[in-house]
Design a binder for these strands. Structure first.
Length: 777
DNA sequence: CAGTGAGCGAGCTTCCGCTTGACTT
């Protein structure tokens, strides 16, 4: 007979609590929300005051049945879901769905999973806070209304299956706006001057400083160097000051995603799934949190570890305040469950992420680092500008001993220790070399997944549990795409003054290369423009913050939830009807110019399967159409680039009596020879490849084909082949790995059969489509 | 498996937040 049933949200949490509470308590998990608005239709009875139509989610039927059975048997049911809006709603849904009698139901909350905290919580139970529950209901209903009324407008006016919502549409707007900022950005050249000096009485020590002025033109830079020729340089000032640096706060979901991307190269969803695993194994606390708070237990454990390993001087207890909008702080910060575990068993990725979390947590409880910063200026007797030199030495490393937070700015190397020679004001500095290097101003960076999450967090849109899924929705809808960019190579001028001569050299450099950055697609730009025009209030970056304050008022009893929703709904729904009726179908179409060869108009537009360029009007029976390449946008493609697309397929000539052509297909650029297709190698370009190079590819390909068969057993239909990843066995359309240490040349038919049999049942190729694969343009 | 582009027009798509699995890419 069960005395007490405790229900929490997460099964991992249930397991640890059960251990703490002992045999008088059974602890179960609800696996998050158990009910939601009806899936079909709107699921809201608007006429009668926005009454939600809740149903048990299909994947929760089993859990609910189990919880029902357990709660019927229990004498007291403790609802211990999180202490935030969503958690309170979960408690209420449980009470309703399980039909719990008030007399045997208690609502409890605790902030850390320790015996003391839980026992204390049990001593002070309370009722379900209905104001908070109604605030959640308002949130849920509003999101459903916005999503389910806006999306159909897009189906009608733009394309089926598109989506819009309070969070995703604003996140998309960020990406689109950044792209336009970049397109509008005009890169300007300038000259940055650096000088290397030798103190007259310090011998060999060299000091390099940056001029506090940039020159717009080469002429001005040359003029400056010219003046330096006869200039006498001295130390203008020396300033020393002690600065202290404090460690970064412990991880939240968002900051973990950012650091894991920068330091480990993980995507946002990768980070979350590795963290999930660490959590389930009991190595870290909960990974979906917006709080930087550490429990007393953790602060104490960190103190012990730091004093024992580094000494008391390295320790400083700190409690961090969470500074972001709308944070609900139902959980702790992300930290190791046991600080004493400096390492854990697991995969390389798990170890890496754990290590990052461990360092960040420990560092957050360590003393400030103290640095001595020295600023020296070097002045010349006939120039108004001055060179500034900065150096720093670490007086006390403090938290730097374990962790340094990284930044998105790749060029910052400012943290490096730089020791300067002991010079004083008035000392003569001999000029060694002064260089003026041509640089270009750079556009703002495109968002990475992690930096987009950071921005969303700042705006208060989305929650720790939805950051990664929201980004993947934007991908699935075809709104955005992750891209690498090679960057452009350009030649820059470097002027250097050494001795009495100014020498000019040309230097090649590439700039603007990007990896895994988010770019909008044409459809994403179109949807954003359309929504901004028709629903500016929803697209406003402050919309969520505005409704959040209303939800807070509902939670504190100052507003009635369905009246608040009604106030929003009336004007919103009118706008929806109006737009459905009056707004013209939206599409992207841009005239690029005229084709010099035919004199026909060239347009870029959206086609049935993606964006295309077209030579000739729509009604021209001889019009030519071809798809845009990855990274090209209707909004910004040039006439020149568009015409280039029509150069494919290209005929290269004849090889062994067959015509050789090349083009770009679904799987990248290829050469076609007879019926055979051969992919181009990295670095080869279908627009420029020569017949000779293509012939070489074909020869290699044929040679490889000859080597493909290692052994064939015609009777059984088994063959041993050479594949991309090495030798393998092929039988009845399925491939089998050859065990390590086996020489494929020596395999017998029998051995092959054994390998096939022992590899177990092969699953038939799944017919389920991957939602992430989209038709290429 | 390596480029298309109209034609009939049924029936469907969609939100945000809580939680894990099952299962490929």
């Amino acid at each position: 007979m069960v005395e007490n049933l405790v229900i929490v949200e997460s099964p991992a949490k249930a397991k640890t609590i059960e251990k703490i509470l002992g045999k008088d308590y059974t602890v179960r998990s609800s696996f998050g929300h158990i009910r939601d608005l009806a899936k079909k239709n709107l699921g809201i009875d608007i006429e009668h005051g926005f009454i939600p139509q809740y149903e048990i989610s299909p994947d929760k039927k089993k859990v609910v049945a189990e919880l029902k059975a357990a709660s019927d048997k229990a004498s007291v049911v403790w609802l211990a879901s999180d202490e935030d809006r969503e958690g309170e709603a979960i408690a209420w849904h449980l009470r309703e769905t399980l039909e719990l009698e008030p007399s045997k139901t208690r609502r409890i909350v605790f902030h850390e999973i320790t015996k003391d905290a839980i026992l204390h919580a049990i001593e002070v139970p309370r009722d379900v806070d209905m104001n908070l529950v109604m605030a959640q209901q308002a949130r849920r209903v509003l999101d459903r209304i916005v999503g389910f009324e806006l999306s159909p407008i897009l189906w009608k006016k733009i394309k089926p299956s598109l989506s819009a919502g309070r969070v995703q549409s604003v996140a998309l707007r960020l990406v689109v706006e950044r792209e336009r900022e970049i397109a509008d950005f005009k890169s300007r050249p300038y000259f940055r001057v650096e000088g290397v000096f030798v103190p007259e009485n310090e011998g060999k020590a060299r000091v390099s400083g940056v001029l506090d002025h940039r020159f717009e033109t080469r002429g001005e830079a040359e003029e400056f160097l010219d003046k330096c020729r006869s200039c006498r340089f001295t130390v203008g000032s020396v300033e020393k000051k002690e600065v202290s640096k404090c460690p970064a706060p412990p991880f939240t979901t968002s900051s973990l995603q950012q650091e894991a991307a920068r330091k480990c190269g993980f995507s946002v969803s990768q980070t979350m799934s590795i963290a999930q695993h660490l959590y389930e194994s009991g190595f870290i606390t909960y990974m979906r949190t917006d709080s930087t708070t550490l429990s007393k237990l953790a602060i104490g454990a960190a103190k012990n570890w730091i004093t024992e390993n580094f000494g008391a001087g390295y320790h400083k207890a700190r409690q961090y305040k969470t500074g972001v909008k709308g944070a609900q702080e139902a959980h702790e910060a992300i930290r190791p469950t046991y600080i004493a575990n400096t390492d854990i068993p697991g995969t390389a990725a798990e170890k890496k992420l754990y290590n990052l979390i461990w360092k960040r947590t420990v560092a957050s409880q360590m003393a400030d680092a103290r640095l001595e910063k020295t600023d020296i200026t070097i002045v010349g007797d006939n120039i108004p500008e001055c060179f500034s030199v900065t150096g720093s030495t670490v007086l006390f490393d403090g938290f730097l001993k374990v962790y340094i937070e990284s930044t998105d700015d790749e060029t910052s190397g400012a943290d490096e220790e730089k020791i300067l020679p002991p010079v004083k004001e008035g000392d003569v500095m001999l000029r060694d070399v002064i260089t003026a290097s041509e640089k270009y101003t750079v556009h703002p960076p495109r968002y990475s997944e992690a930096s987009l999450v950071k921005k969303m967090e700042e705006l208060g849109i989305g929650r720790p549990s939805t950051y990664a899924p929201t980004i993947s929705t934007l991908h699935q809808r075809g709104y955005i795409i992750r891209q690498d960019r090679k960057g452009e190579e350009r030649t820059v001028t470097v002027l250097s003054l050494k001795g009495d001569n100014v020498v000019s050299t040309a230097k090649k450099e590439t700039s603007g290369s990007e990896k895994g950055r988010l770019c909008p697609e044409d459809i994403g730009m179109l949807v954003t423009d359309f929504l901004e025009q028709t629903f500016p209030a929803i697209m406003d970056y402050g919309f969520t913050a505005k409704v959040e304050t209303a939800f807070d008022k509902i939670a504190s009893g100052k507003l009635v939830w369905n009246k608040t929703v009604a106030d929003f709904y009336k004007p919103f729904h009118e706008r929806v009807e109006e737009t459905m009726k009056e707004s013209a179908p939206a599409r992207s179409r841009r005239v690029l110019g005229t084709d010099p060869a035919t004199g026909k108009t060239v347009v870029a537009r959206m086609g049935r399967y993606g964006s295309v360029v077209q030579i000739g009007e729509d009604d021209d029976p001889e019009k030519r159409i071809t798809g845009l390449e990855k990274g090209q946008l209707i909004e910004s493609i040039t006439l020149e680039d568009a015409l280039k697309l029509f150069a494919l397929p290209r005929t290269l000539g004849e090889y062994k009596g067959e015509t050789v052509t090349c083009s770009k297909g679904k799987y990248g650029p290829y050469v076609k020879y007879g019926n055979a297709y051969v992919s181009l190698r990295r670095g080869q370009d279908p627009y420029t490849i020569t017949l000779d190079a293509a012939a070489k590819l074909i020869e290699d390909h044929e040679a490889q084909l000859k080597n493909k068969d290692i052994k064939v057993f015609p009777d059984s239909g088994i063959s041993v082949l050479n594949g991309r990843f090495g030798p393998y066995i092929k039988h009845a359309g399925a491939n089998y790995r050859i065990p390590k240490g086996t020489d494929p040349e020596l395999l017998t038919e029998e051995q092959c059969k054994e390998i096939i049999a022992s590899s177990g049942e092969r699953k038939a190729p799944s017919s389920r489509k991957n939602p992430n694969t989209r038709k290429s343009k």
